[in-house]
Amino acid sequence: MDGNRNHLNFSCDWRFGFNLQAGLKGTVGYLLDWSGCGGLNLKKDIEVWNPFNNSGQKVVSGRTIKCIGLIEDFRYEGDPSDPIRIKAYVSKGTAADIRSRLGRPLTNPRLKLAWYIISFDEIDKLWFEAAYVKNPKTAEASIDSTGGDLQIFVDSQATRISDTLDIGVFGFEFQVVPASKKKCTLEFANGSKLRLVKQWGAGQ
């Protein structure tokens, strides 16, 4: 986590998340939920090994994690009204669904989403939950716009997971702001003992 000023930024090793190697550790992020924008309900069609998988894990459990995509980049400056920008890699089918929806005017930019980032504390030798939506379990948001352009994009060209695996995934990037009159609690950490709770949104 980049703790510069109030920033809560995470760079995740998405390739490691797809193709976990025994003994290696890293920061891994998952896009767990994404639905809205007039019917764009993305499926959890990616299942990967869960490197954490012990009793200290609260958000998910079990040997595998089902998700919409693997996060590469998470950016948030930390204030209640600040946007959150996420870049993830999704399947060919999910990319096609997004591309199809973006081919028509996006009249309703509202959505619900959830993310989950885990990392490894090298000092305590423990995995920890680095970023997630704490309460409620999904955040209510709207796609942000810059200069009149909605901040949601999907790649048209695939990116290979690795040199040895001929599996292509597609970059999916979006920026969201809290939905009007909605708020949620986000939790962050940069170690197994250090926690930071933030309110996102203004509520009623």
Results as ranks from 00 to 15, higher is better:
142 S>Y: 01
8 L>N: 08
176 V>W: 03
123 I>V: 15
16 F>N: 00
82 D>S: 15
182 K>P: 00
149 D>M: 08
171 G>Q: 12
42 L>F: 11
145 S>M: 10
69 G>W: 05
44 K>L: 06
175 Q>L: 08
22 A>H: 09
192 S>V: 09
110 R>I: 01
32 L>G: 01
119 S>Y: 00
55 S>L: 12
18 F>G: 03
35 S>L: 12
51 P>T: 00
79 D>F: 13
196 L>Q: 12
84 I>H: 07
23 G>H: 04
42 L>T: 11
125 K>Y: 04
139 A>R: 07
86 I>N: 06
156 S>D: 13
201 G>Q: 05
177 V>F: 08
98 I>P: 06
74 F>T: 00
188 F>M: 05
106 L>G: 03
132 Y>E: 06
112 K>Q: 14
43 K>I: 08
35 S>N: 14
201 G>C: 08
153 F>T: 11
187 E>Y: 02
108 N>H: 02
5 R>Q: 13
128 F>Y: 14
119 S>C: 04
67 C>G: 10
152 I>L: 15
111 L>E: 09
68 I>G: 10
6 N>P: 00
142 S>Q: 14
43 K>Q: 13
23 G>N: 06
142 S>H: 00
161 I>K: 12
38 G>V: 05
203 G>M: 10
10 F>S: 00
170 F>E: 05
15 R>G: 01
90 V>H: 12
203 G>T: 01
107 T>V: 14
40 L>K: 01
194 L>C: 11
185 T>K: 12
155 D>E: 15
